[in-house]
Write a protein that binds this DNA or RNA. Sequence first.
DNA 1: TATTCCGATAGTGAC
DNA 2: GTCACTATCGGAATGAG
Lengths: 288, 288
Amino acid sequence: MTQPAQNQDATTGEEIASTKVPPKGTLPERNAFSDLMSPKKPPPSKKVPPLDTPHSDPARTTTFLGRDGLGAYIASPASFPTSRVIYHDEKWVVINDLFPKSSVHILLLPRDASKQLLHPFEAFRDLDFLKDVQAEVQKLRRLAAKELHRRYSKYSALDQKRQKAIDALDGDSDGESRHLPIGRDWSQSVISGIHVGPSMNHLHIHILSVDRHSECMKHKKHYNSFSTPFLIDVEDFPLDRQDRRRHPSKERYMERDLKCWRCGKVFGNKFSRLKEHLDEEFEEWKRE
Amino acid sequence: MTQPAQNQDATTGEEIASTKVPPKGTLPERNAFSDLMSPKKPPPSKKVPPLDTPHSDPARTTTFLGRDGLGAYIASPASFPTSRVIYHDEKWVVINDLFPKSSVHILLLPRDASKQLLHPFEAFRDLDFLKDVQAEVQKLRRLAAKELHRRYSKYSALDQKRQKAIDALDGDSDGESRHLPIGRDWSQSVISGIHVGPSMNHLHIHILSVDRHSECMKHKKHYNSFSTPFLIDVEDFPLDRQDRRRHPSKERYMERDLKCWRCGKVFGNKFSRLKEHLDEEFEEWKRE
DNA sequence: TATTCCGATAGTGAC
DNA sequence: GTCACTATCGGAATGAG
C-alpha cells in the first residue's frame, strides 16, 4: 500500500504544465519538480486551477475551497498529477505548493485524522507524532536539496569546480576521488517549519529553498511569514514555555521591516524594492 | 481693450474638442460650454493636453507646469480656444476647469499682478479687490445658471411645466405671461468660492454646479474640497476672527466622512459607493 | 487640497 | 498569516532636444 509517486500520468495536467512559459535558460528534464521552474504567471488564471479540481475523479466528491484547499490533497492525493503530488502513503501527502514562495517549495501534509485540523502547537504535543513529522521533514529536506542540486548545480562555482575535477580524471580512478574538491552543500539552502499562525486549515509543514524567489511572492506578509520567527522549525518543538513565538501577535512578525535573507539589507515596507533585490540575490546565490 | 470673448477661432483646438466622445443624449449647440459635457475620459490623455500648450503662440514663452498651471491662462488667455477660455479682459480670465469636478465648473482668475499669487485670505484683505471679485463671481454664477438651464431644462419638471404652458398660449399674449408657472431657479444649483488650502498657486475662484458629477471627480479629497467648509464662499469674506475655517488643518475637512450633497447619506471613506450614488442623484436632480 | 504613476494597505468573498 | 478583486491610501515627480 505504501507506494510513492504512484500517480497515473495525468494527461490534461501535463498539458497545462507544458503551456507554462519556460524560464530563460535550459529546461531541466522532467520530474516531480519540473513545473516548479518559475512560471511567468502564477499557476491559476482564476481561482483554483481546473487541473486540481478534476470532476472526473470519483474520490473527490467534497469541494475544498479557500482555507480548506489542502483538504483535497489529503482526501484524494491520487487524483492529482505527479507535478502536484510528489508522493503519498497512508501517513503523508507531499505536494508542490500551488503558490510557491521560493523556487522550491513543498508541503508535508500529515493524513492522521486526529491531527489533520489541529494547530501545530496542539498537534505536536503528541511527541510520537512530532518525532514522525521531524523524521519525514528530514527526508524532505534532503529531497529539496537534491532538487536544488539538480537545477542549479550548473551555475554553482563550487559544484562546477568539483565537476571539472571529475572530468579531469582520466578513467575511473576511485582512489583519487577522495581528493576531489567538495561540492556545494545544498542542504544549507533549505529551510523548513510551520507557520505560527497558519491560514490554511489543514496541518502543513513547509520545506522550501532559501531564495524566496517566486512570482507568487507578492506582498510583505508572504515574505515575512518565511523570513521571521513566524516560521518555526519542527526541530524546535517542544517549545520552551517562555518561547516568545508562543505569542506571535505580540511579536508582530508580519509588520516587521522587510530584510533581505541573504545580505540583511533592510527595506522597510518597500516590498517592490525588496523584490528587485531578491532577483539579484537569486542570481548570486545560484552561483555560490 | 476690454473685449470679452475675443479669441480667434482656434482651429486645432476645436478639432481636439470634437474628438471627445459625446455623452449619451443629444449634443447641445456649440458654445463656450459645449465641451463640458462629461467626456468619457478626462481631458488629457497624458499630462497637460497639447491643445493647451500650443507652441505656435509667441505670447506663451514661459512654461507653466504642475502647481503653476493656471499661470498660462493669465499670461496668455488669447492663445487658448474658446472652449477653454470663456472670456478675458484686463482684470479677469475666466476658464472652464481643465479637470471639472461638476458638470459645470468654471474658474475666475484675477489678473492683478499684486494678488495673483496670494492666498485668498491675503488677497481679500484688500476690500476693494474683494468687492470686485464678489461682483464678478455674481456674474459668473448667473452665467453658470444659464448654462445649466441650457443643458438640463429639457429634463426639468418645473421648466417643462412652464414650457408646456407657453406652448399652450395661442399667440403672443403678453398679458397672460404673468400667470405662467415659474420655471426652475437654476441659480440655486450653483455653488462658488475659494479653497481654504488651494493646491494651484494662482488665485482662483470656483463657480460650479452642485451635482459634483464628473469623470474628473476621482477621490475623497476632490469631493470634500467642494462639499465641506473647505470651500468658502467669497461672500463670507471678510471672515470673522474666530471663524473655524481660518484653521483648516484642525478641522480636518478632507478626512471627514463622505456625505451626499443632495440627500445627506453618509458613505464614510467609500468613494466608489458615493460615485455610484452621485450618478443616481444626478439623474434625479436634473429632473427636479 | 493641481494630475499621474506606482505601490502599499485594507476588506471582501470564495460553495 | 490561502488567493484574487476592488478600492483606498500614500508618497514622488511633474519640463526638457
